[in-house]
């Protein structure tokens, strides 16, 4: 009786709490890492005074933001203004329910799964849920009753809608091979195939990655927040904790995008070469650690790209999506479908 209570109620609640906190902890790591890495690229040192090498900097920043005055200026649509930061952050955290953070671990007779929910259409759900953040962005920009946020929100919507298509197409090529939209199945199929899909479908991965960088509004596609043109884009009028929500949501989206890239293209919690017997000692390291290592690489890649490339012009951005990435992903999917059905 007590055993089943633990299995049915307590463990899921603990898992939900951990999965809710995981993106936020990663956000803190990312805030520090981004400032340090970009500083290193620019031959500076970055924040290194608070704690060892400045690792307590995000906590200090958060405390400062939480105690700042929360300004709501006149002419604001209060409901939308207050709901949009929550929508943006909530959508990215909710999507983590379907991401497997690790494999199944056997403790006694109980199988501990490192995911909260398993759904046969998990991938579709993740793409759907993370798209809710567009509403947060456009509500935030619109309800601010100010022209820069509105322009930023419009840009953001055009950008996210354009780049959603290549993301969906490149993900579709994964589904051709895994024949499942279940995230756990996709990882297990990669184990059976003996090769991660990222190496099998490099074109899909490159398209996916470029589009996902654009979708998270990151440099070099950070047009909605282009400070030289639009102050801060859709969150110009936000301050204090609501601004912190937008800020955290941006990083949470990056963590989500990296998690998707890892699970879909780079074998999730699997160690490298999972089927090679000589490398079976790598299975000793728990799957969560492998997952974490991989997403850290992709999060680092986000920052690295930001520190390297200058911002696109808006027409270039839209042209890249509609004239290059979408035709390329269509062609890619055609070739893959052809190969899959005849070879």
């Amino acid at each position: 009786m007590s055993n089943s209570l633990a299995a049915d109620l307590i463990i899921p609640i603990i898992k939900i709490i951990i999965v809710g906190l995981f993106p936020l902890i990663m956000v803190m790591v990312m805030v520090w890492l981004e400032r340090r890495v970009v500083a290193f690229i620019q031959l500076r040192l970055g924040p290194n005074r608070v704690g060892f090498q400045g690792i307590l900097q995000p906590i200090v920043d958060a405390i400062k933001l939480f105690f700042k005055e929360d300004i709501t200026h006149t002419g604001v649509d209060k409901v939308l203004f207050n709901i949009s930061p929550v929508l943006v952050l909530f959508s990215s955290i909710l999507a983590f329910c379907f991401i497997p953070l690790g494999g199944t671990m056997q403790i006694g007779t109980y199988n501990l799964n490192f995911w909260v929910a398993e759904s046969p259409v998990g991938l579709l759900l993740i793409i759907g849920i993370s798209s809710i953040s567009v509403f947060g962005v456009i509500f935030g920009g619109w309800s601010s009753n100010s022209k820069y946020p509105l322009l930023g929100a419009l840009r953001s919507v055009v950008q996210i809608l354009s780049y959603e298509i290549p993301v969906a197409f490149s993900v579709l090529s994964i589904i051709f091979f895994s024949q499942s939209m279940n995230m756990i199945d996709i990882v297990n199929r990669q184990k059976d195939a003996g090769i991660w899909y990222g190496f099998m479908l490099p074109v899909s991965f490159v398209i996916f990655w470029i589009s996902v960088v654009a979708e998270t509004n990151r440099a070099p596609f950070d047009l909605p927040e282009a400070e030289s043109e639009l102050v801060a884009g859709f969150h110009t009028e936000y301050s204090g904790i609501k601004f912190a929500y937008f800020y955290m949501a941006e990083y949470a989206h990056m963590v989500l995008a990296s998690s998707l890239a890892v699970v879909l293209f780079f074998g999730g919690w699997l160690p490298p070469f999972p089927n090679v017997a000589a490398l079976s000692f790598l299975h000793v390291i728990p799957g969560f650690v492998w997952y974490l290592l991989k997403i850290m690489f992709f999060l680092y890649l986000f920052i690295w790209i930001r520190g390297t490339f200058p911002r696109y012009r808006f027409d270039e951005l839209v042209r890249l999506a509609w004239k290059w990435l979408i035709p390329l992903s269509l062609l890619n999917i055609l070739v893959i479908a052809f190969v899959r059905s005849f070879a």
Partner: peptide, 19 residues
């Protein structure tokens, strides 16, 4: 060209800092 750009910034991350 993009990879070249990335390699330049990677190199700069490990060079001496001016601060």
């Amino acid at each position: 060209d993009l990879l070249q750009g990335l390699s330049v910034t990677l190199k700069y991350q490990f060079t001496h800092k001016v601060t």
